[in-house]
Design a protein around this nucleic acid. Structure first.
Lengths: 163, 163
DNA sequence: AGGAATTGGTTGCAATCGTAACCATGGCGA
DNA sequence: TCGCCATGGTTACGATTGCAACCAATTCCT
C-alpha cells in the first residue's frame, strides 16, 4: 500500500555491542514517525487526488464540516494546526469558493467561517472516503491487535498530549 | 511535556448529524500524526539542545553509530529517509568533522561513511538520552497499556509498512 | 566490445513551513 | 477615558523539503 518508505535492510547486523548502541528500528519515536508518515502520506493521496487539497486544507475542511461554523482559532485548536497554517488554508479554500467568511458583529477581530454549498459537497464526498480508509487500515489487523492498538494509543495520548 | 499541540476545545459539540460527519479527533491518521508530532518534537529538542543536530542529521548519526560503517543508500534504507535528505545530512556532519567519507575501492560510486572520534563521542552521548526518553514515555503508562501499545503498533507496522 | 539501462549520490528549484513581527480590535485597570 | 496587555488573524523571511534533473560509475544485454 505504502511505497513511501524504503524497505529495511533486513540482513545487516550491528557491528557494535548492544549496550553502547541504540537500535533505531525499535526506537519508539522513530517507529511512530515512520508509521505515521506512511499512513498519512497514503491518506493524503486520497484527498489530493480527489479534491486537490493540501493537508492543512483538508484538515480545515474537515473541521468546519464537522462543526458547521468556526473561527480560525477554533479550527487551529481542533485540528492541531498553527495559526499561520490555518490562515493560509482558509485563504486558499476561500479563493476556491469552498468557504465563506462573515465578520462577527460582536467582535470585529473574528471571522466566522462556513462552508459554501460546493465546500459542503466536497466534505460530504470525502467523509466516506476517509471512513473507508480507516476501516481498511484496521480491518487488516486481528480483532485483538486492533483493540490493543486503540487502547495503547489512547493511553499514550493521555500521558503525552493533554498536559 | 509537549507544548507543541494546542489543547482540544473540549466543550464544543458537533452541529451536524453523526452519520454525515467525520470526527477528526477520532480519526486514526489524524491521531497518529498529532501524537507523533508531539513526541518527535519533544525528542528532537533533546538532540537539538545537546548536539545542535537536525532530525535528518540525528538519524544519520544514529544509523552509522548503530552499524559502524555504511553507505548513504544503506542509511536511507535503515532510517527511512529520502536520499537527498541523507546526502545533505552527511554533508553537514562531514563539515562538523563528525564523519569521514572513504571511497570504496570496489565500486567508485560508493562512499563508505564512518564516524570520527568526535562523532562517536556524540553518538555515545546521545544513546542514554534517547533510551531514557523512551523509558520515560513508556513508564507513564500502566504495564497493560504499554504492552497493548507495543502489540498494536507492531501489528499496524506489519500490515502497513512492509509491502 | 559497446551502447542502454541501473545505481550511488548531488544539486537546482519551487513549494511548504515555523518563527517572529506586525496590524487591528478588544478587555481591563487606574 | 486613557494607556497597556491580550487576542484574532495576516504577512515577510529564512530554513527545510521533495521532485526532477543531473553526473559518474557500473552492470546488463546482445
Amino acid at each position: 500500500m505504502s511505497q513511501s518508505s524504503q524497505s529495511q535492510s533486513s540482513k545487516s547486523q550491528p557491528s557494535k555491542s548492544q549496550s553502547t548502541t541504540l537500535a533505531l528500528e525499535n526506537f519508539l519515536p522513530y517507529r511512530l514517525t515512520r508509521l505515521t508518515d506512511a499512513i498519512s502520506r497514503d491518506f493524503s493521496q486520497a484527498y489530493r487526488a480527489r479534491l486537490g487539497l493540501t493537508r492543512p486544507e483538508w484538515r480545515t475542511l474537515a473541521t468546519i464540516g464537522q462543526f458547521g461554523t468556526m473561527t480560525a482559532t477554533e479550527i487551529g485548536a481542533h485540528s492541531s494546526m498553527h495559526k499561520t497554517k490555518v490562515s493560509r488554508a482558509v485563504a486558499s479554500l476561500e479563493t476556491r469558493r469552498w468557504l465563506v467568511r462573515t465578520p462577527d458583529p460582536q467582535d470585529r477581530r473574528v471571522e466566522r467561517l462556513t462552508l459554501s454549498k460546493t465546500g459542503q459537497k466536497a466534505y460530504e464526498d470525502m467523509v466516506p472516503v476517509a471512513r473507508s480508509f480507516e476501516t481498511k487500515l484496521l480491518d487488516r489487523m486481528k480483532p485483538k491487535e486492533r483493540a490493543a492498538l486503540l487502547e495503547g494509543l489512547e493511553a499514550l495520548e493521555r500521558t503525552t498530549l493533554t498536559e
